[in-house]
Design a protein around this nucleic acid. Sequence first.
DNA 1: CGAGTAATTGACCAACGTCAAACACTGTGG
DNA 2: CCACAGTGTTTGACGTTGGTCAATTACTCG
Lengths: 236, 236
Amino acid sequence: MVTPPLELPFIRTGPFDLATQGATLNRRDRERLALIAVRMRVPADRILFERGAPADAVYSISHGIVRSFRRAPHGRRRVLALLFPGDLSGLARQGRYVNTAETVTAATLFKVPLDQLAAMARGDPGLAFSLLCKATHSLREAQRHTLIVSRAYAPGRVAMFLNMMDETAGRSQRSARVAARLSTADIAEYVDLTPGAVSRALADLESRAVIARRPKGGIRIIDRDRFDHVVNGGHL
Amino acid sequence: MVTPPLELPFIRTGPFDLATQGATLNRRDRERLALIAVRMRVPADRILFERGAPADAVYSISHGIVRSFRRAPHGRRRVLALLFPGDLSGLARQGRYVNTAETVTAATLFKVPLDQLAAMARGDPGLAFSLLCKATHSLREAQRHTLIVSRAYAPGRVAMFLNMMDETAGRSQRSARVAARLSTADIAEYVDLTPGAVSRALADLESRAVIARRPKGGIRIIDRDRFDHVVNGGHL
DNA sequence: CGAGTAATTGACCAACGTCAAACACTGTGG
DNA sequence: CCACAGTGTTTGACGTTGGTCAATTACTCG
């Protein structure tokens, strides 16, 4: 009934690299999940679930972007992950969601009841293994995020973010121009800067001819070498 | 032959909270892993594997502390995780280790060949599920780490670190006084500060009677309420 | 009781946050 | 087609905070 049932086509690597093999949940896994998932369309800026709420489902993103975040004391939010098509959202602990999830753009996603997913995974090594791959992928991304946030050099953070978006875009044509869909404020939340600092960083990278900003918020990488240099920790 | 075979007793939560149930790999999982694991003792400051090297095994920590890190351009290291008894080390991607791992203290650990682990997990839903739990736990920790590193207020970072150590100590008596085993420099690497900044932060927390430093590097939390306040983002 | 290492402290500097104002862009309605 | 609101971006001035670098003090272990 759902076509494609659950598109999770982006797991290129495995848990402890168990799976250089695949990228996607295989057909069988997708079909099995489709049996228990509910498809839903959600407009932008809609909360999917709140931190602390009983965790009853996992969301598989089919289209659109979702952000996972926590609220800091003084109103500022700390985004812990940006989720793209193929990603799963719903990290929990002791029955409660750990973060709040909200759509950034309009999105279509599949809601998978947790109890059913757990039951299914327990009896299905292939599925459990696939989920392990996903979790491992998320772990790598989280570590990359830590790397981004721990850099002092603002253009470095932004460059790493752009690089991430660039890679993500490679996963699917759909999300190719995603970066353009994200506001300066969205980027700022993810890389832990203020919108102003992001703006300055982008201006800096542009003035040095590393990137070029196109109208509509599009960004193009002009000088790959120097861009990579900055991404890898370089200071210019 | 190995007793306990693989002590992984600290998974309190499940993947998407699939497992509020258990904490530990169950007996069966441990026994199965023991069949393919090799026990080894390693002194402090020994590299287990280097980033980029072919990932052929996962290490299960039985005793001691391991750090997972990457080298930044200017010699500075960025620690991405501190691993304690019960944790697994060996995150890889496309057949290569993602980070370098090194013992912080002397440690005893079990080396589990990756291919065998993968094969076993593929055919064993319970094991795959347990590994999923572990990975999910690591993911939560990684996000917490991001939270730590993204705070501007140095005493806040240090307090969050101490809180983490406090929780970890609760997992086992063995690691109770672990914090004492970590040098200022070790802490600094994890929370992304300089040793000097950590020192200042500790001095600050102490001068405000939030913590007290005991000889031998021991740290005691004096004022839980204000400590928690700082941990949760408060500024004093 | 010393040698060596780790922790602490101080002075200066660089970089971002903050706050606020100026500006640009988008889409609307006249 | 243009004026205009509303939002999002950019820019400026100033303050805060940790990094840097180096010197000093504690500590540990022979």
